[in-house]
Amino acid sequence: MNEKNIKVLIVDDFATMRKVIRNLLKQVGYEDIVEAEDGVMALKALKAQKIDVIVSDWNMPNMTGLELLKAVRADSDLAKTPFLMVTAEALQDNVVAAVKAGVNNYIVKPFTAEVLNEKIKKIMEGINK
């Protein structure tokens, strides 16, 4: 699957961080990018359009990344949506909780555009096998 055809939903409460991730995605060829400022808005965006992969921050007010992941997996229409969790640190307890909740992969900040692309590609390849 070509990057151009992958629709990415970036979920982060910081507008600046959403811009940073958007900038990184653009650098490696992604063009179809939508944003949500928290888990609640992300669920609305997911219901309104077909999203190929979710790139979500862990720490967010209202609904954390983990709560969003659980909500996505519990919704029969959205359950199979690939989910990449962004964290500031790879705390083992958090990783275990995310894996149990059905995360496809996680990425620790800071990361390069190439590493982000690699993670998304790996998830998409796994899904399309």
């Binding site: 507008a15 600046t16 940073v20 900038n23 653009k26 500031a88």
Partner: peptide, 29 residues
């Protein structure tokens, strides 16, 4: 970081400083 030509201290800068501090703390820890 944003791929934009920022000219003055704005809210993006404030958010980014928080995020950079958070990330430096994460890697250092």
């Amino acid at each position: 970081m944003l791929g934009e030509n920022i000219k003055s201290m704005d809210s993006d800068i404030k958010d980014a400083v928080g995020e950079i501090t958070n990330m430096i703390s994460g890697v250092a820890r």
